[in-house]
Design a protein around this nucleic acid. Structure first.
Lengths: 255, 255
DNA sequence: CGTTAGTTTGACCTGTATCAAAGCAGGTGG
DNA sequence: CCACCTGCTTTGATACAGGTCAAACTAACG
């Protein structure tokens, strides 16, 4: 209620967008999504998501959720980031070192009824789409590994921003070239495997290089093609026809 | 034929061990495994594994296989490591930047007939076991992320060795406390996101600290409990009753 | 307005990379 | 059997990316 993000897109719509972006899907295949309206839950930023008694799968429908590992000395690493339209699995047995938490204010709904309906019902297209989505999630995880293992802080940050941007585009929650990112730099640090201070400096560097703008939780990517080249990122959503006027580039230092 | 690793364990046996280690399985559930004997393929170290025309899933039955990402400037990161008993998915469309290759001499068999038989047949236990195995693979991936993101070189190396050891134990290819590791330090570097030189120094440090021994592709873990503590590793296979005589600890520097 | 959470800055330190060269096999062919 | 590769490991010297510590700044919020 603070900034933007009113009540948001209805869960079923979100999921429909997410799935049909990967696999062609007819709206009528999508009846089971009506199952989704139950058990909407809101989560404060930094609050842990716990499952009831059994394993649970929830659909994120607003905000960001992260699965993260804690070390005894306070180090934290976010293992995977979930954006609206993604599923989170909440294991019944929550170990102390491995938690799922809301990285910003977030909302989720129980996905079990929907998934159950899909599994038993006759909607092969949806089932196929889900399988593809699962593979896409796995691919995101691999990108995460690449970032942490072999990219420099600068590359890493660019890479992450590009990935987030595309994932949000996919569900209609970003415009080409800009995204809402209500995450603290501490969260970004835990995502990128960097220190807070270094994240801050890296973002400034990207800004000074005229590649991004970063203000009030909104990030603008001025030149996705160049960012992609820097980060070794393979753009899946093609660079915009010309959303960003070419003139903008003047503020960049051609180096 | 060089060192040990004669002809090795038959694929069906390997898979049986792998699966029944996670999920109780009766041998008679396991008839479909006879399907596995076809299409055994040997791979030279460093050779790429390519799929025929379609997507393909193969079972690793000897050696190590890695999925890796290449950057234009020569940096490489191994995204996931497969040991005997694991499945590798070979996508039909192989992009230049993303390859699967044999990290040591290795052997694989086509898993499709087996998986097909399971999917269609009546062997719910095996299907459940496969699902669990898949989740275990995902968990290994998360460990990989933690290592790369938040552990120091020293911790990272210990962590990886512990993980490999347990994964090999699981399929009966390691003794408690020691494992065969025919990987060059360059491969370890690409796995750990470190430089070759640093991997070398880190291994020496672990050796000097009396925690491991490293000779001729065989690694001995002298004190898994201590290694686990260093690496923030959660041992799944309990520390040995007393495989390593306590006396061994004398060579360590108590610091 | 004070308080609190987050961002920014500066100074300094250290883990890890890089470069270069020297050891050390194991395998080949003369 | 030796001389020679070639691929891998080891060592030393040096450079730099990124971490840590500490403090100032900013902006929300009650």
């Amino acid at each position: 209620m603070t900034t933007a993000t009113k009540t948001g897109v209805p869960p079923a719509e979100l999921l429909f967008r997410r799935l049909s972006a990967i696999h062609p899907l007819k709206p009528e295949d999508f009846a089971p999504a009506s199952q989704l309206e139950v058990d909407l839950r809101s989560h404060a930023a930094s609050s842990e998501l716990r499952s009831g008694e059994a394993d649970e799968i929830r659909l994120v429908c607003a905000g960001f959720v992260g699965e993260l590992r804690l070390l005894s000395d306070g180090r934290r690493q976010i293992l995977g980031l979930k954006v609206p339209g993604d599923f989170v699995r909440l294991p019944a047995t929550s170990s102390a070192g491995h938690v799922t938490l809301a990285l910003s204010r977030a909302q989720t709904v129980d996905a079990a009824p929907f998934l159950g309906a899909i599994a038993s019902g006759r909607a092969p297209a949806v089932r196929a789409a889900l399988a593809k989505a699962e593979r896409a999630d796995a691919a995101a995880m691999l990108d995460h590994v690449l970032r942490l293992g072999r990219l420099t802080a600068y590359e890493r940050t660019a890479h992450l921003l590009l990935e987030l941007h595309e994932r949000l585009l996919r569900v209609g929650l970003a415009m080409t070239g800009s995204l809402e990112l209500p995450l603290t730099q501490e969260i970004l640090a835990d995502l990128l495997g960097l220190s807070i201070v270094h994240v801050n400096r890296t973002l400034q560097q990207l800004r000074r290089d005229g590649l991004i703008q970063y203000r009030l939780g909104r990030i603008t990517l001025f030149d996705r093609a160049k960012l992609a080249q820097i980060a070794n990122y393979e753009l899946r959503v093609p660079p915009p026809a010309r959303t960003t006027p070419v003139v903008r580039r003047l503020s960049a230092q051609p180096k």
